[in-house]
Amino acid sequence: MDVMEKSLLEKLNSPAMYLIVGGVIALVVAMCVYFMVKSWRAGVAVGMDRRVLKKAIVSSATFTVLPAFSVLLGVVALSGSMGIPLPWLRLSVIGNLQYEVNVAQIAATSVGLSGLKITELTADAFVTIALVMTAGILGGALLCLFTLKAYAKKLGGKPKAAGSGKKSFGDWAMIAMFVGMCAAYIGSYAGQAAQKEYLPLATALIAAAAMALCEVLERKCGMKWLENFDLAASMLVAMGAAVLLGGVM
């Protein structure tokens, strides 16, 4: 890593960047606290048992701890290529690991980089990538802003009818889209391997092998808790392997 890259990474991790991110996270925390207090009061007002409300809070807090550590591993995974503050913001609020990495990669190629690599990143590219990541994920929030009241009214508070359990084509289309996305990336790594650039394909294959092991442990050995970590853990295993293989390939 040369001086210029190091200096950009230092800038990306500067106190001013933490301050910006901390301010936005504090705002979202305020929103959460506001809604929490409001819904607690509403629960009490409509006669719900306080013990049930308390149980909902405690169970949600305990339910969240393990997946939150997985989200933290996502921050670690992105910190070397984007600094800590931006991944911290994106994964604390609005984003998720899968979206952030994919969109950062698409945005990086759109600004002319060969991929999400600190060795190629410039400050201009970074802010452009950050804006693409922000604007690209606003669909759900914008729909809430403009249509949620009407949609909720249309739903009319009617309990949802139980489905047949069979997947609709909509469900399959979502799976197909992600299958296609993964196939496109893995295809590009196969293409790179044909050009004697083996590391991306090797990293992807090791990540797939680690995920396969997680799947076996989850399904055959009853280690359901592993589901919270499988994606982040498989990525970290493959990234570790990339360090070892980097010297060889």
């Binding site: 999400l116 992600f178 990293t203 499988d230 994606l231």
Partner: peptide, 17 residues
Amino acid sequence: TPAFDNVVPALFGALGL
């Protein structure tokens, strides 16, 4: 550096499976 340069292959390998 090779680890962070290969975040995307690591994601799509695991997610792909």
